[in-house]
């Protein structure tokens, strides 16, 4: 089984609130120097899902990590390799740096085609920067393979995979034949840490760098569908009225009275 895992490098989404600002003119997020760039957490879990499949099926599972991004995205691939991916592809081209979901999906789908027979594509449910959740499903549509989204568990079964997925009010289990694309949600659970042996080996694992020309992307595929016209941080103008008391208990009682007076208790 050959699995491609789509990963994206994003600014560490934890603790962003205190440090992030936006340059509304250039439509870019501004972060203090040194704010870490990480593999988007859902993509880490997609890689973890691939590694769990290998744990289940055995060494016959080959894992290729694929990213689209600038120079720095190489670090994300290195992390995937040190976690156990066998090789990696870095789609890297000035023409693709500001790709929208349409262009990104076409580039990633072309890379998967170029890799040859991929049985399973795994991706995070959304990237933790723009939170769109479009690219993975777009890749499935371009490749013409079935997709299952929001997976929290995956295992190999005869001729395909069985996927447990998260619903609004519960879970469902589905089976899908391969090739297929599955997007992974955080309910998959803890991911493993890089181990020393794999980290040592990672340095020697191959990383291919492919540009738009090598992927054979056509002009229409490089034509974005959308342009960002604004990026802003919404203003908060709520004033909090603090309810106090001699003890926390008294403050709780007073809160009830205040909510009652403000007619918000219904």
């Amino acid at each position: 089984m050959h699995i491609a895992v789509l990963i994206k490098q994003v600014p560490n989404p934890d603790a962003l609130a205190a440090v992030m600002s936006v340059d509304e003119a250039s439509l870019k997020v501004v972060l203090p120097p040194g704010h870490p760039q990480v593999v988007s957490p859902f993509d880490e879990q997609a890689l973890e899902a691939a590694l769990r499949l290998r744990d289940q099926v055995g060494a016959a599972v080959k894992i290729t990590a694929v990213t689209l991004g600038p120079d720095s995205a190489r670090t994300a691939l290195k992390q995937a390799l040190s976690l156990g991916a066998d090789d990696a592809v870095h789609i890297h081209d000035a023409a693709l740096l500001d790709a929208d979901s349409h262009v990104s999906a076409h580039a990633l789908a072309a890379a998967i085609r170029k890799l040859g027979t991929i049985d399973l594509v795994l991706a995070g449910r959304q990237a933790a920067d723009f939170d769109a959740g479009v690219v993975g499903l777009g890749v499935a549509e371009i490749l013409g393979v079935p997709s299952v989204s929001f997976a929290c568990g995956i295992e190999a079964v005869d001729g395909g995979v069985q996927v447990e997925r998260v619903l609004q009010d519960g879970f469902e289990t589905v089976q899908v034949p391969l090739p297929a694309l599955v997007t992974i949600s955080n309910e998959l659970g803890e991911v493993r840490k890089p181990n020393l042996r794999e980290t040592m080996r990672a340095a020697r694992k191959p990383v291919a760098a492919w540009g738009a020309a090598e992927l054979g992307l056509e002009a229409s595929q490089l034509q974005p569908r959308s342009r960002r016209t604004r990026l802003f941080i919404p203003q908060k103008n709520t004033q909090c009225e603090f309810i106090t008391g001699a003890t926390a208990f008294e403050a709780g009682e007073r809160l009830a009275q205040r909510l009652h007076d403000a007619r918000v208790l219904g």
Partner: peptide, 19 residues
């Protein structure tokens, strides 16, 4: 819009009882 600073173990039961 409204806030209480305190341990929920005290605040919440008091709120419930008063409601």
């Amino acid at each position: 819009r409204f806030g209480v600073v305190g341990d929920y173990r005290e605040v919440v039961p008091a709120l419930a009882a008063q409601v």
